[in-house]
Write a protein that binds this DNA or RNA. Sequence first.
DNA 1: TTTTAGCACTTAATGCTTTTGAGTGCTAAC
DNA 2: GTTAGCACTCAAAAGCATTAAGTGCTAAAA
Lengths: 346, 346
Amino acid sequence: MLTKRQLIILKDIVRLYTESGQPVGSKTLLDQLPMHVSSATVRNEMVRLEDMGLIEKTHLSSGRVPSTKGYRYYLDHLVEPSGVDANDLALIETSFDQSYLQIDQIIAQSAKILSSLTSYTAISLGPELRDARLTGFRLVPLGDHQVMAILVTDNGAVENQIFSVPHELDSESLEKTIRIINDQLIGLPLTAVIQKLHSDIPQLLTHYMITPSGFLDIFGNVLKKAAKERFHVDGKMNLINPATIKNVDQLKSLYALIDQDADLAELIGVPDQAIEVRLGDELTNNLLHDFSLITATYEVGDHGKGMIALLGPTSMPYSRMIGLLDVFREELAKKITDYYTHRGEE
Amino acid sequence: MLTKRQLIILKDIVRLYTESGQPVGSKTLLDQLPMHVSSATVRNEMVRLEDMGLIEKTHLSSGRVPSTKGYRYYLDHLVEPSGVDANDLALIETSFDQSYLQIDQIIAQSAKILSSLTSYTAISLGPELRDARLTGFRLVPLGDHQVMAILVTDNGAVENQIFSVPHELDSESLEKTIRIINDQLIGLPLTAVIQKLHSDIPQLLTHYMITPSGFLDIFGNVLKKAAKERFHVDGKMNLINPATIKNVDQLKSLYALIDQDADLAELIGVPDQAIEVRLGDELTNNLLHDFSLITATYEVGDHGKGMIALLGPTSMPYSRMIGLLDVFREELAKKITDYYTHRGEE
DNA sequence: TTTTAGCACTTAATGCTTTTGAGTGCTAAC
DNA sequence: GTTAGCACTCAAAAGCATTAAGTGCTAAAA
């Protein structure tokens, strides 16, 4: 168990290290401590903290740096989320204050604000689409045998894709097909739609179309697009950071990772706390060894959970970051709830 | 006027410098020259080339590096586009060999192939939309007072945007409005459409709508989106290059530049040759001091001109790059012509 | 007149040693 | 348990000699 003084010292080492980026020595630490002790005393305490594996030296005679275990301890026991600066708060409020036509816009905007506020990389994901229900499917002819397929879900997501229509498909049977789809599938969760698409529907359609498969592919395609979790990432450039990036190749792989929605989804997983910090070693990907991921989830009534996260170096100022994310949790929940209720009213 | 030997020396300096990245000395140069001379002779020639400002030293006793003026001379008089490697050619052919639904896909793919082939940043722009004509405008109700506006042009571009519809607009007058728009504007070039939108149309519409302005805004908005030149950029990461990037800030500004279509448009301007190389100083932006931009334009029948470009360090292997771009000019012209004629046939 | 050999000179880069500064651990006294 | 004092360590900076690749210039050869 740590003594009170050791707690203070650990906390200050974390703080000073994130502020200066330099290993913290006993004398530097002296100025910060509330009690009156000598540097030798501090050194003795530091030896004990080092024995416990909470801090470490970069070389035999260097100052101390928090170890991963130290950060873990700090995050679990010591960190106090700081209140958010009035300026920042105002900036968040005004930046969010727009009228949004799609949830995606709110999500994208949130990532933008967060990354500009923190100078880290922000990742935002709207309320899960798993619970989304299909509210409509349209085909709009564009001329030249091209057709735009539009799919609408009840949480405001709209997907569209353009297709060339083969000659065999006459517009009449298309119309009928769409009517069947709308009759049979509207109101169902997307997951159920995907399922039915492979079981019931093909049989129903054979009455109207010779080869329904081609058309079902179109529908399935747009459906897959809509059901896919799409992350909004902002501030990618902030990953360029001498502390964490060793070489150009690493940076490239990192960008590849960030740009791949599937990889991101795996990385983020399913956080089980409202705000959760995962340090380099705790993340699956070893590219992220010197990074830290802070995820914050929020609930939007019965529309599911949303998520917003920060990716940055292990030595982030966690108290500020956590404070900020807390504001974002509230703000996003509010904004998105607003979005739903407004649409309900009209 | 340069002697034959001076031309050979200048050409070899350019070549060796792009190959090795190191300043070229008289002895190194000796091995490359076809004639038998001593290093002292080469040195004398180099002094003359330096007097003319074509090459320069990095320090008093260093080898020579082509100056901007030297590159200019090389590009204007000496460079010989090299034939394209059989492997590369095969790769280009197979990568392009897909069926495309939108011109944008061809353009995006071209940037992708070119950047992967060269390890530089590729910028691709489809045939100019200025000549594009409006072929259709649709409004599709999505429920919840939301409407998707879809605009189609005759060169395959499809724009869409989602809007909330105010209560005052009943669907009947919307229908009529769309009919008017389609009657009056289809077939006109987008530029003419934009013009008419502000002159004739408002008057026509007052018969059917009390406040047409709100609706015209929607239309104008989508129109603007479609009329905007959109660049496809690939291989952005390749801008990270120790030779050209001094610090992280420069890199960030550079990315900001590349991501801004308007800035890119200004940077690229209107090249007046089929293939044109512009060196750092000749580019408007001083961020690009150590870069070079190779633009290649191609004609797609009467659908206007397309452009594909490479952005890389000044010391690019120009003969290979120009050879490659020449292939892309042909290939793109062919692919896009194919695209139009296929759509015409069906 | 052009070319070449020879030589003195310059510079960046490399490797080596020294110095400095910030830090540590340990011991003995408080 | 705390502190002063001191020997010790190490990274970073500074200084210095050496080397390799290059130059310009001069005087002789072609």
